[in-house]
Simulated scan of single mutants.
Amino acid sequence: MPSAKKNRRKTINYTNKKKMWKKVKQKTQVHIPCEQIKNSWDSKKTVKQNLSEMGIAVNPNAVLPIPKPYVFPTIIAEESKPVVVKPTVLKEMELEAEQGEKERNIKLPADNVLFCIYMLDKYKEDYKAMARDKRNAYQLTPKQIRHEIREFKRSKQQYQKYLDSKREQIVNDEVMQT
């Protein structure tokens, strides 16, 4: 005799369906990182329609085509430029671009700072020699050391302290020599 479990009808858990639908809905929504575009986005329109209303090109190749070496002379019909309905978006984006990137305050651990200072004082910009140094305990490659030093130079406060101390040393050395 066949078991009763095989013929049993499967039930649907509707709470699960709701959760699944929420996930599907989240995936289909457009993720826009730019605040100006996000505020003026119309979800009832297509991406192309939204961007053309804002004056933003969907396809850069259509706006600035690559010139061909030789084009046969033909009559070219005038292309109509898209009408910018929402010019404020472009203005806000231009203002944001003029301001530049926000300064990041990077603060490195004291061990990394001391390592970078020692290497810069001893070897200047010779990363291969830095990689062979005995203080390179973690056996960093020259590229890894260069990356560490670049991070140190990006940390404004710590690098500025290093430069100030170097200037003081130079001034003290000049005073001692005179």
Results as ranks from 00 to 15, higher is better:
Lys81Ala: 12
Glu148Arg: 07
Ile149Pro: 00
Glu101Cys: 04
Gln160Ile: 08
Gln36Asp: 09
Lys86Asp: 09
Lys19His: 05
Gln26Gly: 07
Met1Lys: 10
Leu90Cys: 11
Leu108Ile: 12
Leu120Arg: 01
Asn16Gln: 14
Pro60Gln: 04
Ala137Ser: 12
Ser52Ala: 05
Ser80Pro: 10
Arg146Asp: 12
Lys27Thr: 12
Ala110Arg: 14
Ile170Leu: 13
Met176Glu: 15
Lys19Arg: 11
Asn136Thr: 12
Val85Trp: 04
Arg167Thr: 03
Gln177Glu: 15
Tyr70Lys: 07
Pro69Asp: 08
Cys116Ile: 00
Pro67His: 02
Glu103Gln: 06
Thr141Asn: 03
Met130Gly: 00
Gln144Ile: 11
Lys143Met: 15
Thr46Gln: 05
Leu108Cys: 08
Ile145Asn: 00
Tyr70Gly: 02
Pro73Gly: 10
Leu51Asp: 01
Glu151Tyr: 00
Met119Cys: 03
Met54Gly: 00
Lys122Met: 04
Pro33Cys: 06
Ile32Val: 12
Arg167Asp: 11
Asn112Asp: 13
Ile149Met: 01
Glu125Phe: 02
Val171Ala: 10
Val58Cys: 03
Thr15Ile: 05
Gln139His: 13
Met20Ser: 03
Pro67Arg: 05
Val71Pro: 04
Ile66Tyr: 09
Pro87Asp: 11
Asn61Pro: 00
Asn105Met: 06
Cys34Glu: 06
His147Val: 12
Ile12Phe: 06
Lys128His: 11
Leu114His: 13
Ala110Ile: 13
Thr88Tyr: 08
Gln26Asn: 12
Leu95Thr: 10
Thr15Gln: 15
Glu92Leu: 14
Val71Lys: 02
Met1Ile: 04
Tyr138Ile: 10
Pro65Trp: 03
Leu64Gly: 00
Val30Gln: 10
Arg135Gln: 15
Ile75Gln: 07
Asp121Thr: 05
Val71Asp: 01
Asn136Phe: 11
Val175Trp: 05
Gln169Ile: 11
Glu96Asn: 14
Glu151Pro: 01
Pro73Ser: 05
Lys68Gly: 01
Lys22Gln: 13
Met119Gln: 01
Lys107Val: 14
Leu120Gln: 02
Lys5Cys: 04
Phe115Gln: 01
Cys34Gly: 01
Val89Asp: 00
Tyr162Ile: 06
